[in-house]
Design a protein around this nucleic acid. Structure first.
Ligand SMILES: Nc1ncnc2c1ncn2[C@@H]1O[C@H](COP(=O)(O)OP(=O)(O)OP(=O)(O)O)[C@@H](O)[C@H]1O
Ligand SMILES: [Mg+2]
Length: 364
DNA sequence: TAAGTTAATTCCC
DNA sequence: TTAGGGAATTAACTTA
């Protein structure tokens, strides 16, 4: 029961930029920056990712495009818009190769996958050889570099990969877990983001060593049963979370940036209608019915607000989608004084539309 | 009081 | 100071 595991985390290096270099190899050696343009002004938007040539100049994911341009002036950079369908295609080729190495594969986003190889290897030395083979094959057959972390669980595999990138391989055996994690800052623990790291810092906890020495009862007190226990276990390098395949896509969303911030419902509703039409078209094309409708509003202070409503029955009716989305936006604007910067619509709680299935359409 | 449902948030890529 | 996807937690409410 709960036999010791060998878990591997494979993470493609600077993925979107690397995919672009694959499509156009003449860009290799130059800084390549993949951008999400918002359309508000000519250059508004952020960097999705940048290759390591660009990172040398301090360019990072999430950085405004204008700042990246400034940092790269004179460095002969290439700026490209994101192309999700292409990255998805490239990703599928890579995941296909990895699936040959374990039937326990958990994909995370487009560029990462956990593999539980406990049944395929005898020890960590063998896992290291397997990881080398995966790296070799992904490079030969898909043309991409990646980093692999190997450990006794998902958290350690992930932290090993983070420490080894780019084009790296790091194996952390159980007996080396403590020395590996102790000196690292707490925000290197997967699941500890900005908010949690700030709270820990206020409690005087900066490194994982600090966290390991802290009274677990007080952690649970502070952070609740789940996060408190997770923090304590992680500080000791322990993590039982299994590698498991993820379900098919269960939601669709589309969010846009408005030309100008507004609190005027009449200015937002036409956009909401357009977004609903796009999402509806995709839902019908993919044959899904949705039972939950939501809106996402990013306010001028960049706060993220969501409002959702569950329907009495699944539907794919456009009128219902538009009515409910509009209603949620209207109620949101009535509940606040803030201006809206970005607006989006979200559908979820899918069931597949079976042949000839009918729905309660257009209910009120 | 327990169990299910709904809505909002936090965190991940 | 972006987009689109996912998992998990938690609080509040409903129902049995
Ligand atoms: N803030 C972001 N906004 C939009 N897309 C992002 C953002 N951060 C990461 N991504 C996209 O997700 C992909 C995977 O993210 P990840 O954190 O693995 O970084 P990466 O670009 O692959 O770099 P590396 O893994 O070498 O550090 C990236 O290629 C990237 O383009
Ligand atoms: Mg990556």
């Amino acid at each position: 029961m709960g036999a010791r595991r060998v878990v591997l985390l494979a993470d493609l290096d600077y993925f979107y930029s690397q995919a672009e270099e694959l499509r156009n190899p003449s860009m290799r050696g130059k800084p390549v920056v993949v951008c999400v343009y918002s359309g508000r002004t000519e250059e508004s938007g952020v960097v999705a990712t940048a290759n390591y040539e660009a990172r040398k100049y301090g360019v990072r994911s999430g950085m405004p495009i204008a700042l990246a341009k400034k940092r790269l002036s004179g460095a002969d950079p290439v700026f490209l818009p994101v192309d999700f369908p292409y990255y998805k295609e490239v990703s599928e080729r890579v995941i296909g190769i990895m699936k040959e190495y374990s039937d326990q594969l958990e994909q995370v986003g487009l560029d990462e996958a956990y593999l539980d190889v406990s049944n395929r290897v005898e020890d960590f030395a063998e896992a290291e050889q397997l990881a080398k083979e995966i790296k070799r094959r992904v490079l030969q057959e898909a043309g991409l570099k990646l980093t692999i972390g190997v450990g006794p669980n998902k958290i350690i595999a992930k932290m090993a990969s983070d420490a080894a990138k780019p084009d790296g391989l790091m194996v952390i055996r159980p007996e080396n877990v403590e020395e590996f994690i102790s000196p690292l800052p707490v925000d290197k623990i997967p699941g500890v983001g900005k908010k949690t790291a700030e709270r820990l810092e206020r409690m005087g906890i900066k490194t994982i060593k600090d966290l390991a020495q802290f009274d677990p009862v007080r952690l649970v007190d502070e952070f609740g049963e789940s996060l408190g226990a997770h923090l304590h276990a992680a500080s000791r390098g322990e993590d039982e979370d299994p590698v498991r395949g993820r379900a098919e896509a269960g939601s669709m969303s589309r969010i846009i940036t408005l030309k100008e911030n507004t609190k005027d419902l009449k200015a937002v509703l036409p956009k909401v209608d357009e977004i609903c039409e796009e999402i509806h078209e995709r839902a019908v094309r993919e044959g899904v019915l949705f039972r939950t409708i939501g809106i996402i509003a990013i306010t001028s202070d960049l706060g993220i607000k969501t409002r959702t409503k569950s329907l009495p029955a699944p539907t794919d009716d456009l009128g219902t989608l538009k009515r409910e989305s509009s209603e949620l936006v209207k109620k949101f604007l009535q509940s606040t004084d803030k201006e809206i910067r970005r607006i989006g619509v979200h559908i979820s709680d899918f069931t597949r539309r079976e042949k000839g299935q009918r729905t309660l359409s257009g209910y009120i």
